[in-house]
Amino acid sequence: MKEKTKSKFFLSKKIDKVFIKLNDIWLFVFRFFKEVFVPPYEFKEIVNQCFELGVRSLPLISLTGFIIGIVFTNQSRPSLESFGATSWLPALMSIAIIRAMAPLVTALIASGRVASKIGAEIGSMKVSEQIEALEVSAINPFKYLVVSRIVATTLMVPALTLYTALVALLGAFVNVYQFEGTSFTSFFVQVFEAITFLDVFSSVIKSFIFGFTIGVVGCYKGYTSSRGTEGVGKAANTSVVTAMFLIFIEELLSLQIINALRIVD
């Protein structure tokens, strides 16, 4: 009996579990790509989710973006001042915000707000048999719930990122105007001179990946949450943690790739 249980596992029980999980997630992503291009399309639900997950995040993102713009500018000034180079502030902020901060901050906020919402929502639908109810009324729950949400986050996170960048730059402008008296036009001319097409392009691509990650993680955690109400809380919680973790890893990887591209450029 003991030997039988032992031979079931390939390496050890724990490592096997990790591989089984990775395989599960891979199958989940695979299923998404299999179903997303096949009609019937859930346009109405996608628009609905874009509103719920994207537009509803605007207040939080506006506030955070604006404050980060002000604080970042303010904290960067002393170091530039010691070189007498405060006139570089608009360019510095432009690069910092568009290359790094906007995509990362937006993705992290979306992880906190959106991934947990998706995890909890789908998790509670799973626990209370609502997903099975969809299934028995001949509605594909994967397409209706999962595909629509992943599409929505993949589209909305890049849009939110551009918006965050804009708001953060406005925050930076307010601060620069207050201390250096730079005009609006002159500030934004410097901002756009400092960045290249590659900067904007890579940030947008990165945000698509972040958005996709957030959608997949939230949906996967919710869809596979265990029975019982505690399963719902766990789904919401682990969605946030996992999404943030993956986003940091993706950020590091994309940094390497973009830097390599910059050298080629």
Partner: peptide, 20 residues
């Protein structure tokens, strides 16, 4: 199966109404 399911009504143990 989906076609057949339209002819079957399933009343769930805890009703499974769509909360939202």
């Amino acid at each position: 199966l989906d076609r057949l399911r339209l002819k079957i009504g399933f009343s769930f143990q805890n009703s499974a109404l769509y909360d939202s």
